[in-house]
Nucleic acid binder design. Structure first.
Lengths: 215, 215
DNA sequence: TAGATTATTAGAGCCACTCCAGTTATACTG
DNA sequence: CAGTATAACTGGAGTGGCTCTAATAATCTA
């Protein structure tokens, strides 16, 4: 897929490298789309791109990274850093996503394909979490700065993790609906739940509570 | 570690199997504790228990399961199902954990050791998420039943994922503090954040901040 | 064009994990 | 208590992701 960011490569070396990188990803996605992730071996991908398997690992540290790698992060980070200081995280996310909804719509098909892989292939789902954790660390730093707290602050981390997983759940739902409808809207819905304190009764009518939570 | 649940094995076969299973886990934890997870091979573990590597995989589908496996789930499920219908999930969790705090204190050392592994070894952290997802499905079913909604309901899933990840973050914090202090209390703190709608300003006063964010 | 970098490669090797066929130990039946 | 069904255990061969290394080839710098 044509990359949004084409950093005007300098030397032949750089250009060639970038081309190889893209070739690998392209061929890999093609093969994986046809055969499935687990059924596609690194050897096959390497063969398709006409490089040696060794070289594959020069470009991607693992087969997983191949699928995980995307170019949205810098955009998100940049947008996030433009948000005003006092703003609650969930609001920031709403705004950032709103600003990105164009990109999402444009890349809908690709996001769909990759998203499906994420959730269907256990190895990838697992790795996805790793990536999200990195994102969370970043976000924690943002909020910490805004609020003059420590980036390692427990409450901040909780807030971040809540918001991120809510968004992820929205992604899952979106995939579940086969990419029909607006992803951004689903995230907003998920964030509504967050804002409501994750209580069902704030959303629907509560059933007859014989409650009496002791302790 | 002596299992809480000793189901009064019937035949010799069953008893022997259980003993082997425990041996494997015991020896494995010993080796891992001494050498680290990645440095400990299945072959070594098998050798220590005097079984063949093939047999290892008869007992545990993967090396990861070895560390992940625990016996709290049934307890939690049972306690959860006793919670009254209208109760918000975060409240249920608070109560369930309160009821389990005795167990947590008793098994403190083991939980600490395993917890550290979870978060330090990437492969395990990844698998942990898989397990948590299963737990989330279960919880969704509980709430769905209570609230007469569909178990696949988007909002329910969001609520569940929020609460679970908040609790997990509490676990991380607890480990970060080397197991000092009460785990249950940390979970409560995390759930406070959930209840407050994941907003910092509900917790602390918003600062003046010179914001910084340029771009 | 010479020399320093950097990319590419084959090959050997590690380890988790699978599959299979043969053996051995327990359980059940008459 | 023998005989057979059943399930556990085993070695061995194989796969695939991934690492390391040492040699070679391509590109860049001067």
């Amino acid at each position: 897929m044509a990359n949004t960011i084409t950093p005007l490569a300098k030397g032949l070396r750089e250009r060639k490298k970038q081309k190889t990188r893209e070739s690998i990803q392209h061929e890999a996605m093609r093969l994986i789309g046809k055969q499935g992730y687990e059924q596609t071996t690194v050897e096959q991908i390497a063969a398709a791109v006409e490089i040696s398997p060794s070289t594959f690992f020069n470009y991607f540290p693992s087969k997983e990274d191949l699928v995980l790698y995307d170019s949205y992060d810098p955009v998100i980070i940049s947008l996030m850093s433009e948000r005003p200081a006092g703003e609650p995280l969930s609001v920031s996310i709403r705004n950032v996503l709103e600003a990105m909804s164009g990109i999402f719509e444009r890349d809908r098909e690709i996001i769909l394909a990759r998203g499906r892989l994420w959730f269907e292939v256990p190895a990838l789902r697992a790795r996805l979490w790793e990536e999200l954790e990195k994102a969370q660390v970043l976000m924690s730093m943002f909020i910490a700065q805004r609020s003059e707290r420590d980036p390692g602050d427990f409450e901040i981390r909780v807030i971040v993790t809540i918001v991120v997983t809510a968004a992820l759940e929205a992604m899952r739902e979106w995939l579940h609906r086969d990419g029909k409808g607006s992803f951004v809207e689903l995230v907003n819905q998920a964030l509504d739940v967050v804002d409501a304190g994750a209580r069902l009764d704030e959303i629907a009518s509560p059933p007859a509570t014989r409650s009496g939570s002791n302790a």
